[in-house]
Design a protein around this nucleic acid. Structure first.
Lengths: 334, 334
DNA sequence: GGTGGTATCGATACCGGTATCGATACCAGT
DNA sequence: ACTGGTATCGATACCGGTATCGATACCACC
């Protein structure tokens, strides 16, 4: 375990002071072009790799950004991370991530742990943190951007959409084209607050039209295609006389579609299916599944940029609230 | 922008020295239970959040781990990150990620930038880094685990599988059950070295049996369902007389399946499709797509654990080479 | 009482950079 | 020659923790 070469080594090799070496490598002012050249070469020769820990500690500004998502097996949050990665591209900032598995305790621990890295900002999924977690965010004194939701009261900035409204909007659209006998199939609503909001919004729209879910099944744990398949079978067995099924998201809906294909149920003629997110997969089936298209990549990217802007403006940037509206896509339902 | 409370503040509030406060909060030895209690309470009252930058700098050990993946829109690498997250759960270590977009330049920059955070270890996708990047990894003096590949010479440890072998294995299986007229459809092989290795392995197996690809189409850019669909249409138009199509991965294959459904081609009776990865989606179709199931969650998890072990053993742990074998699944092809 | 051991604590010196400010040199203008 | 300004550089003091080692107190035991 040989010692790493430090800035002092580079400075010594270049016959300048640490300070000049530091300035040269950072491209700061107050260094002559010739010094820069010499220092650069020395750093190159020694294979010098800077130390962001020391730099951040000393300069009191970090080049880390935290991203907290509930889950990564689902492609949606992966795309959010992807968007974040795009949003900070070229800034030299590195993203740190944490997966909460929809657990409030884990979320608290992750955020606390992230804060101890003194990040330039934090991007957190959702608006429904536990009170202690929220206090942590409020006192963090760094830009905080909550994403993927808009139903609630953000700590600071917010980039997302209203799940309640999204649920209501697709319900209205489906009612408009004539569906009346609705069923619901979801996964893990006790944990996924946003899926619960969609269901709530959908159900509220039904009520406005004097309708209700005639059957409903909520599986525990993460959403998945197999679960959607199984629950669809169960619900249809219990209540075969439905004309439209609303699913907590596209994965579950695709599971439902698979069941229908197996069972010889024609979609959407005999039974319409509606999900949420607008995934590629669901897309591929030529419009057979209705869905709400969410702009998750965009949301990640914009959230990251907000953090960057807020970080450079050093606290005198007002909180932003950027609202997206998922686009209802009924596919080939007419 | 009020100043953050530091350890010194906590120590002052608790009427002890910084050192005692530090020990108390870390649960280190040499502190009385009563001191721990007092310091804990003081920290709690002040809302103290530690500073990992300072801690890591001082103790010369970081609690970050770097993860480099080529892409995050594809669920495969998201699941790798998910596995990494699982693997380090409870260790207090935070994962930093970087997305290379299959670019060697970005990969170099990302790894360099990660090294400057002095991470406890690095997990990097693939074995085919550019020479300069490889030197960076070799001189990093921290555990490096290369994942998702095994065809090549690892820098340090390796957790993956042979893509060449995987391509060969599924080819053999498909030949075994009687297919003879093969076509190939892929995306971005110029960048995705691993997909290219699979194709190479597949083709080598064909050659061993005196066969070859009768048609082939390679799209540029990232793999996607739409591209698979489009290319399948194109290839079948050019060469309709095929009995099996090998795709660069399941996404592309699902695109192919969608085309077949549209075009009324019965799968696998008229035309068999084979992909790679064993995605849930492909799974859902009752075995219609042949695939090789990869253990990406496992790979991420084990890689993370290797890094942890190597980090605690401080360099005297030998490099590991953990080989998985993707399981060939022909689905309902008989 | 003297000795040795253990438990607890604090002073000090770093870790590897950067902010700050003063020093120096050099040039232009008068 | 003198003044003022700019360009370049280095000494020093941190940033907020932790490693290390010495100091102190207290107890057991001979």
């Amino acid at each position: 375990m040989k010692k790493k070469t430090t800035l002092a080594d580079v400075a010594a090799a270049a016959n300048v002071s640490k300070m000049t070496a530091s300035r040269a490598l950072r491209g700061a002012k107050d260094v002559s072009a010739s010094s820069v050249e010499i220092v650069r070469r020395a750093a190159q020769d020694l294979g010098y790799v800077g130390n962001h820990l020391a730099a951040s500690l000393s300069s009191q500004r970090s080049e880390l950004i935290g991203a907290v998502v509930p889950n990564l097996s689902n492609v949606v949050f992966a795309q959010v991370l992807s968007g974040i990665s795009d949003g900070i591209a070229g800034s030299g900032i590195r993203p740190v991530f944490g997966v909460t598995d929809y657990s409030e305790e884990k979320e608290y621990d992750i955020i606390r742990s992230m804060l101890s890295w003194r990040p330039a900002g934090l991007i957190v999924t959702g608006l429904d943190q536990a009170p202690a977690t929220r206090r942590l965010l409020e006192n963090a004194d760094i830009p905080v951007v909550q994403i993927m939701d808009n139903d609630g009261d953000p700590v600071d900035s917010c980039v997302g959409f209203s799940h309640q409204q999204a649920g209501g909007a697709i319900a209205e659209a489906l009612i408009e084209v004539g569906f009346r006998r609705f069923g619901y199939i979801g996964c893990g609503l006790e944990l996924d607050k946003r899926a619960a909001k969609r269901r709530f919004g959908f159900e509220a729209a039904l009520k406005r039209h004097g309708l209700e879910f005639l059957a409903s099944s909520i599986a525990e744990g993460l959403s998945s295609i197999p679960k959607g398949r199984e629950r669809t079978a169960a619900v249809l067995k219990q209540q075969p006389d439905l004309d439209c099924l609303y699913f907590s998201n596209d994965d579950v809906a695709v599971g439902g579609l698979f069941h229908c294909i197996d069972a010889g149920i024609s979609v959407p003629d005999q039974l319409a299916l509606a999900g949420f997110n607008g995934l590629d997969v669901a897309d591929g089936f030529p419009g057979r599944i209705a869905t709400s298209r969410t702009q998750r990549n965009e949301i990640g990217r914009i959230a990251a940029q907000l953090v960057l802007e807020a970080a450079v403006s050093k606290g005198d940037m007002p909180s932003q609230n950027i609202v997206f509206v998922p686009e209802v896509d009924l596919g080939n339902i007419s």
